[in-house]
Simulated scan of single mutants.
Amino acid sequence: MLAAVELILGRYAAQLPLTIRQIWYAAIAEGFLIRQERTYKRLVEILGMARRSGRISWLAIRDDTQAAVEPLAYDGPDGFRRALVEAALGYRLDRQAGQAARIELWCETPGIVPQLAAVTDPWGVPVYAGTGFTSLSGKRAAALRAASGGHEALCILVISDWDPSGLHLFTALAEDIRAFAALDAPDVRMEFERLAVTEEQIAEFRLPTSPVKATDRRSFPGTSTTQAEALPPDVLASLVRDAISRRRDAAVLAEVLEREDVQRRALLERPPV
């Protein structure tokens, strides 16, 4: 199993760190495991031992079970000056400025947000996750962002599971943001698109499925369910990359990047505090 995991981590090196569930789905797709909860629990145990022993890098697997807030501190004035230089090196403008539509990516699964953010970062597209789908304040915040950006439209791309919850989350997200925008951003057009998971993707990539829960009475057009983490990480990255790039004006972005570079150089040329 560890040899299979190492093969999977090597294949998706560009998308690391992966969640354990992504590794599990990849192992199922490769035929290393069967889709049963006991195999997932066993994988969790084995990966824990492998990470403790040093066989699997701690940086290869994402673990979001701990939330922490640490105070900002420096090792002295020199450390503060180094932080200023690092901040200047990271200086950037709003890379969506001047575009007709502001794009946001919303993902039902918090664990893959950093993976998606690495894909969206060159365009300055933010990624929102998890509780935002059910948080009224999070939905209203999206409408307020639409109102303040000077864009003609707000385009929200959504990644959610193919199951009753995933589809209903998408519907509720679109309905609520449209309602808030009608008050807070009446002149901004609202656009919503589910990038994944779809029935076509399930068939194309032969994703593992589960039956719809008999106790779930919500309307659902499918006969089986699939989680977003079942999509191969490189496929997911490609879906996001293509969706954003076809909505961007490359010339407008190039002009923003040029100004960003000029201003960054000016910051670095100034003497440190």
Rank of each mutant, 00 (worst) to 15 (best):
V235N: 07
G222T: 07
F192K: 11
S210N: 13
S245C: 08
V240L: 15
S224L: 00
D249G: 05
V212D: 13
P208T: 02
R206K: 15
P208D: 07
F220L: 08
L207P: 03
E204Y: 00
A251N: 12
P221N: 09
S245V: 12
A214W: 11
K213E: 15
V235W: 09
A254G: 11
L195E: 05
A230E: 07
P232T: 08
T226D: 00
A230V: 05
R206G: 07
L207N: 04
T198M: 08
V256M: 11
I244Y: 04
E199C: 03
R218V: 02
A228N: 04
R217H: 11
A214C: 08
G222R: 06
E258V: 03
V252M: 06
F192T: 04
V197F: 08
P208F: 01
E255A: 14
L257Y: 09
I202N: 01
I244V: 15
A243M: 14
L236D: 04
L207S: 03
Q201K: 06
L257V: 05
A214P: 13
A228P: 01
S238A: 13
V197I: 13
R259D: 15
V235K: 09
V197K: 03
T209N: 01
S219H: 11
A196C: 12
R194E: 13
R259K: 15
E199N: 08
L207Q: 05
T209H: 04
E229M: 04
V240P: 05
E204D: 13
R241H: 14
P233R: 06
E229C: 04
L257F: 07
R259H: 14
V197C: 06
T209D: 07
R241N: 10
S224Q: 11
R217I: 02
T226A: 14
T225L: 01
L195K: 06
F192M: 13
A214I: 12
A243I: 12
V235E: 11
L207M: 13
A230K: 03
L195G: 02
I202P: 02
I244L: 10
T225V: 11
L239A: 00
P233A: 05
K213P: 12
A250H: 14
S210V: 06
I202A: 06
R241D: 14
D216I: 06
T223C: 01
R247F: 06
T198I: 06
